[in-house]
Design a protein around this nucleic acid. Structure first.
Lengths: 220, 220
DNA sequence: GGGCACAGTTCGAACGTCCGTTCGGTGGGA
DNA sequence: TCCCACCGAACGGACGTTCGAACTGTGCCC
């Protein structure tokens, strides 16, 4: 077992325990047990609980951003880029459920020096969403309006990614089409019928790339 | 000072501290200090930390549900009912920021016996949203689809209610129109121009009722 | 009216527990 | 022999909770 695999396993364990119990209820002892290490053995690798949280958040956000940039690069039209963002987020919510949970719930608990670093990565992600919406906007909305629209979209995505709606990668892709249609055309329009051309083709175009694996081998 | 006011003040203090620090980081000592009581003095009124969280959640959800039912009763058309729901949620997010934060972040931490009671009230709220969307749906979506659409809507609302977007009751009403328009007609349509008739009149009809005050006098 | 028992409040101080962290040591491969 | 990975055991502190006492006002008997 290489040292990199050791770190990966430790971050995996921390991610799972943090997601299941929440940062403050999770104990170092619990994480050590999940990583098949003794308490002091765990401290041989990481400096403390804060750093464990940082490693989980950093690896998660790095993977999420990488996945997003890959799918965005493969999408040509603005609609396809929006679908790519939605699908990447939902797929990440399915393949990295624990990480997304920690990212959404506990990222704010990080102490000062590390907090800024994670906040910057988060801002980068929101920035991507804002750019996608700006390129799509036929009304040239103001920056504030676009920013709140981005938050609306991400709120929607987290709302269903947190729930039990995504049970498979196929679910993620079908839901992405549904969410994309609802966001673009509204609740009153019906865009998720199998016959709908624009969205389905966009989904197919954006969905060609896989999920972007490597959950355990980032940033170390 | 009546005993009811004592309880109200204690719940206010607990709500503020829970919202600012999170349930597990908040300490009973901190809540007692905020309530201008000694540690043991606080225990004279409440059984423990669990009960404090329950009281905060119960009062908040009760107020939220009452506000919603009042504004829903005043709204005639399905569109107006949707706007009423959105506006009630955003206004509650503004007037009871701390309570909404605790409801969204910490409701799941409640131990068993009380957990079911709060979960039922939460379900009641989601049920209202589902009924509103069902009455509005021109496509007779399936129950699952309506349920996920409800979660999309509530996710949107919490996404911006948690952010710094709502800075006044006027903001809440303007944002409600914007969110309602976006949800109904989609990002590609522009429905929040001042000249837009359908949404603006719906907002005016739904917005006639106030915020439904009494943040400190419920359920005790 | 004065003294007094009593119940309702409030408090200081402590108890037991569990947490994050540290330290001194042990075993084995180079 | 040295070093690196790892561990058992402990430390100091903070937490939720409890306990016994002090204070305060009220009604009651004399």
């Amino acid at each position: 077992m290489t040292i990199g695999e050791r770190y990966s396993g430790i971050i995996d364990a921390a991610c799972e325990v943090f997601a299941r119990r929440g940062y403050h209820v999770a104990t170092i002892r619990e994480i050590a047990r999940a990583a098949r290490l003794s308490l002091a053995g765990l401290y041989h690798y990481v400096g403390g609980k804060d750093e464990l949280l940082f490693l989980v958040l950093d690896r998660g956000l790095t993977t999420l951003l990488r996945n997003l940039d890959e799918t965005l690069a493969a999408a040509r039209t603005p609609e396809a880029r929006l679908l790519a963002l939605i699908q990447t987020h939902l797929e990440f919510g399915f393949t990295h459920t624990a990480a997304l949970r920690v990212i959404n719930r506990d990222w704010d608990l990080l102490p000062r020096p590390r907090h800024a670093e994670i906040a910057a990565k988060r801002r980068l992600y929101i920035e991507r969403g804002l750019q996608v919406l700006a390129a799509l906007d036929p009304h040239h909305r103001s920056g504030d309006e676009l920013y709140s629209a981005t938050n609306l979209l991400l709120g929607m995505l987290n709302g269903i990614a947190a729930g039990p709606f995504v049970r498979s990668l196929e679910d993620a892709r079908a839901l992405a089409a549904q969410v994309g249609g609802l966001f673009l055309y509204g609740f009153l329009e019906r865009t998720t019928d199998p016959g709908d051309v624009a969205v389905v083709t966009a989904v197919r175009a954006a969905g060609r790339r896989g999920a972007g694996a490597l959950p355990s081998e980032a940033s170390l």
